[in-house]
Computed example of a mutant assay.
Amino acid sequence: MKKISLLFLGLSMAILGCDKAAGDSKTGGQPSGRIVYVNTDTLLNNYEYYKDVVKEFDSKRFALENDLAKRTQSFQNEVALFQRRAQAGGMTEEQGKSTQLALQQKEQDIMMFRDNAAGNLQQEQAKKTDELLTNIQTYLKKYNSGNKFDMVIGYSKGGGVLYAKEDLDITQDVLKGLNEEYKNSGKKPAAADSTKK
């Protein structure tokens, strides 16, 4: 499974448009430019919601890996027992065939569980990615309620924007606001339970 940060890679390339209106060059100490940027690397590394989501999915991934390891070990023990019994002549040919079929079915069930659990985790990650982007876009619309900016660009090292003046960077203001909203919302990602069975 890919790291959750890969799911948010699109954020660094996103251009978040805001309503057009005449700019005010002296408003609240903000940059006078019509286009500003947010450093997405800094934002993600310091946005408490994002950090909580990463912890949540790391925990879920860990629980899934442990569950799969236990199921696999149990299956391998059953296979080893079957092989010992078959070699010792402790079962009839018919018992051997039915046990083999049961073991094949069990192996398929484990693989299906793994695939379903991984798929569910990916769907949850996609939903959280969408929620993250929505949170940021919604906050930026509020942040730009005075129509100071025409556009807020997501900037990251190695991204599409190669240079931007530092006085156009609104990352810290946006980060502070997002973290305050998250703290005041009382929302925390669900505690990791074992994946859906």
Rank of each mutant, 00 (worst) to 15 (best):
G17M: 13
D41R: 09
V36N: 03
I15T: 14
K141I: 08
M1F: 11
A102K: 08
E48H: 08
A117C: 02
L140S: 01
M91K: 00
E107C: 04
K197N: 09
N66C: 06
Y50E: 02
G177I: 00
L121S: 05
T134K: 15
K3Q: 15
V53S: 08
T42F: 04
G89I: 03
P31L: 01
R114K: 15
Q104K: 12
I35G: 02
D130M: 08
D24A: 07
G17Q: 15
R84Q: 13
T27W: 15
P189C: 01
K60H: 03
L140I: 06
L140Q: 03
A164V: 05
F8P: 07
N39F: 05
K51Q: 07
S74M: 10
F149P: 00
V38S: 00
D173L: 12
A21K: 09
F8D: 09
K51R: 06
K188S: 11
G10I: 06
E94Q: 06
R61F: 15
K60F: 03
D41Y: 11
L121R: 04
A86G: 04
K142D: 14
K197V: 11
Q123W: 10
T72G: 05
S5W: 12
V152G: 02
R84E: 08
A190G: 04
K196G: 10
P31Q: 00
K127R: 13
Y50M: 05
A22C: 08
T138W: 10
L178T: 03
I170T: 06
D173F: 10
Y163I: 02
T42I: 09
Y37W: 01
K26S: 12
G154D: 01
G29H: 03
D19W: 04
S185R: 02
K176F: 05
P31D: 06
K127D: 15
N116P: 04
T27R: 14
K165W: 04
Q137I: 14
M112T: 14
L16K: 09
L11W: 11
A126K: 15
T42A: 05
D167Q: 09
R61Q: 14
Y47K: 01
V79L: 12
M112W: 11
T138I: 07
L132E: 10
F149L: 06
D58W: 02
N116M: 11
D52R: 07
T72H: 10
K142I: 08
Y37H: 07
S59H: 06
Q100V: 07
Q104I: 06
K3D: 15
D130K: 13
S32R: 05
K2Y: 13
F62L: 12
S98N: 12
E180C: 02
A190L: 07
Q123S: 14
I136W: 01
G89Y: 00
S145N: 14
F75E: 01
K60W: 04
K197G: 09
F149E: 04
S185W: 02
M13R: 11
G158N: 04
K165V: 08
K70I: 12
L44N: 02
Y182K: 04
M111Q: 14
L43S: 08
K187P: 01
A164W: 01
L133W: 10
P189G: 00
N179W: 00
N179D: 00
Q73N: 11
D67G: 06
G186C: 03
V38H: 00
E166M: 05
K142H: 14
Q87K: 14
G28L: 15
R71Q: 13
K26R: 12
K148P: 02
A22P: 12
D67F: 15
A63Q: 03
D167V: 07
T129M: 13
D150F: 08
N120H: 14
E131V: 03
